[in-house]
Simulated scan of single mutants.
Amino acid sequence: MTTILETKDLTFKYPDGTEALKGINFKLEEGTMVALLGHNGAGKSTFFLHFNGINEATSGSVEIEGKPLKYDKKSLLEARQKIGIVFQNPDDQLFAPTVLEDVAFGPMNMGLPEDEVRQRALDALEKVGMSHVANKAPHHLSGGQKKRVAIAGILAMKPKVMVLDEPTSGLDPNGASSIMQLLYDLNAEGMTIMISTHDVDLVPLYSDNLHVIVGGQIIKSGTCKDIFSDPEVMEEADLRLPWIGQLFEKFDKEDGIVFEEGYPLTVGDAHDALLKRITK
């Protein structure tokens, strides 16, 4: 696999001296869908803001396609065309009078011809299912619609990587599932996706490539099974098993039903585990 984004010994201190990131070494492989799991205050958002130069590292480096990120205007524009970030609160990104103008903002700043800017914006809105609100004001949209429009604004720039900070925050279960299915589909089409979340029930459904961050450090990387079967990591990160895993843990501890391959973490895994036991 090709490494599309890498951080080396990345540290970041706020002006008051608070050390938010502590020497993070991280690689993002092209075409993957990766989750960064950690509680509020763990450093997820701060880490993401280094990927395209919104934050500048105190020490260490960020590399995009093997080249160190520079912080001059031209280099930052190039970085932001390749690495698009969707903020946790879509209101931080939506500011134009209409949805179409908002989605067109990025391509317009790339200096593209007007016809191409408009077409990119229309295509992106169609991709996220928001063509019907093109002429509406963003502040009239629901939370889920705003998330989709914010994603469209990044899609219109045709980045190689989309990074989303808590993409399901503030959404009801159906809205959260809808957004995650959209991201899953984009990844299936070839886009590299990275999300941050503290929702342990969500992660196993969409990504088996997981990184756990605590106190500005990535303490473990691996599959969901690797992470959720490691009691030390679970305790340090103050995590719990996804609810399906908790159910099967209860079967194990209270009913003596042992699952040698580990606790299932999704409905599909649970179905397979039970079917295997029934047909033995």
Rank of each mutant, 00 (worst) to 15 (best):
Asp91Leu: 03
Asp91Cys: 07
Asp91Arg: 00
Asp91Gln: 10
Asp91Asn: 15
Asp92Thr: 14
Asp92Trp: 07
Asp92Glu: 03
Asp92Ile: 08
Asp92Gln: 15
Gln93Ser: 11
Gln93Arg: 09
Gln93Val: 06
Gln93Met: 06
Gln93Lys: 04
Leu94Asn: 08
Leu94Tyr: 06
Phe95Asn: 08
Phe95Cys: 12
Phe95Lys: 00
Ala96Leu: 09
Ala96Tyr: 09
Ala96Glu: 13
Ala96Phe: 01
Ala96Pro: 07
Pro97Tyr: 01
Pro97Cys: 05
Pro97Glu: 10
Pro97His: 02
Pro97Thr: 11
Thr98Arg: 08
Thr98Gln: 05
Thr98Trp: 04
Val99Ser: 00
Val99Cys: 03
Val99Ile: 03
Val99Asp: 04
Leu100Ser: 10
Leu100Gly: 11
Leu100Lys: 06
Glu101Arg: 14
Glu101Ile: 07
Glu101Pro: 04
Glu101Leu: 15
Glu101Gly: 02
Glu101Ala: 04
Asp102Thr: 07
Val103Asn: 08
Val103Thr: 12
Val103Cys: 06
Val103His: 07
Val103Arg: 10
Val103Ala: 02
Ala104Gly: 15
Ala104Lys: 14
Ala104Cys: 09
Ala104Leu: 12
Phe105Leu: 09
Gly106Leu: 02
Gly106Gln: 07
Pro107Tyr: 03
Pro107Leu: 10
Pro107Arg: 06
Pro107Cys: 07
Met108Asn: 09
Met108Ile: 14
Met108Ala: 14
Asn109Phe: 06
Asn109Trp: 00
Asn109Asp: 01
Asn109Leu: 08
Met110Ser: 06
Met110Ala: 02
Met110His: 00
Gly111Ile: 06
Gly111Lys: 06
Gly111Leu: 08
Gly111Thr: 04
Gly111Tyr: 07
Gly111Gln: 07
Gly111Glu: 01
Leu112Asp: 11
Leu112Gly: 00
Leu112Val: 14
Leu112Glu: 01
Leu112Pro: 14
Leu112Ser: 10
Pro113Ser: 00
Pro113His: 15
Pro113Tyr: 09
Pro113Cys: 06
Glu114Arg: 12
Asp115His: 00
Asp115Asn: 03
Asp115Pro: 04
Asp115Val: 10
Asp115Glu: 11
Asp115Met: 02
Asp115Tyr: 03
Glu116Gly: 10
Glu116Cys: 12
Glu116Lys: 12
Glu116Val: 02
Glu116Thr: 10
Val117Leu: 13
Val117Ala: 10
Val117Pro: 12
Val117Ser: 11
Arg118Gln: 04
Arg118Met: 01
Arg118Tyr: 13
Arg118Asp: 08
Arg118Asn: 07
Gln119Trp: 13
Gln119Pro: 09
Gln119Arg: 14
Gln119Ser: 13
Gln119Tyr: 02
Arg120Pro: 13
Arg120Ser: 04
Arg120Glu: 01
Ala121Leu: 04
Ala121Arg: 05
Ala121Ser: 00
Ala121Thr: 05
Ala121Val: 04
Ala121Pro: 04
Ala121Met: 00
Ala121Trp: 03
Leu122Phe: 15
Leu122Asp: 15
Leu122Ser: 06
Leu122Met: 15
Leu122Pro: 12
Leu122Thr: 13
Asp123Met: 13
Asp123Tyr: 06
Asp123Gln: 10
